[in-house]
């Protein structure tokens, strides 16, 4: 995902701001990382360049 996605996304549960943490990046494309809700603390994974913003109970182990 590109960093400018941060302008529009929010926590799917309480709609609060997310904080981005990057573990792997490739030429402006965030490949692995996390999105953490600044309000409820829920952590959403970024895997293979794709943010997974499913509510946690729908996510299970969402990686391929």
């Amino acid at each position: 995902m590109k960093e400018d996605l941060m302008d529009i996304i929010c926590c799917p549960l309480d709609k609060q701001t997310l904080e981005l943490s990057i573990t792997d990046e490739d030429d402006g494309d965030i490949i692995e990382g996390t999105l953490t809700c600044t309000e409820c603390g829920e952590v959403y994974p970024i895997e293979d360049g794709i943010p997974n913003l499913l509510p946690p109970d729908m996510r299970e182990d969402a990686s391929a």
């Binding site: 995902m1 590109k2 996605l5 529009i8 996304i9 929010c10 926590c11 799917p12 549960l13 709609k15 895997e47 293979d48 360049g49 794709i50 943010p51 997974n52 913003l53 499913l54 509510p55 729908m58 969402a62 990686s63 391929a64």
Partner: peptide
């Protein structure tokens, strides 16, 4: 996630992005 994985693989455009999420819990402001 697999649908999104495929969708992402079909384009290199900077003007589109794909994400995993549910209709009832839209992660948009």
């Amino acid at each position: 996630p697999e649908m999104v994985h495929n969708a992402r693989s079909y384009t290199e455009s900077d003007d589109v992005a794909y994400l995993v999420g549910d209709f009832e819990y839209l992660p948009f402001e």
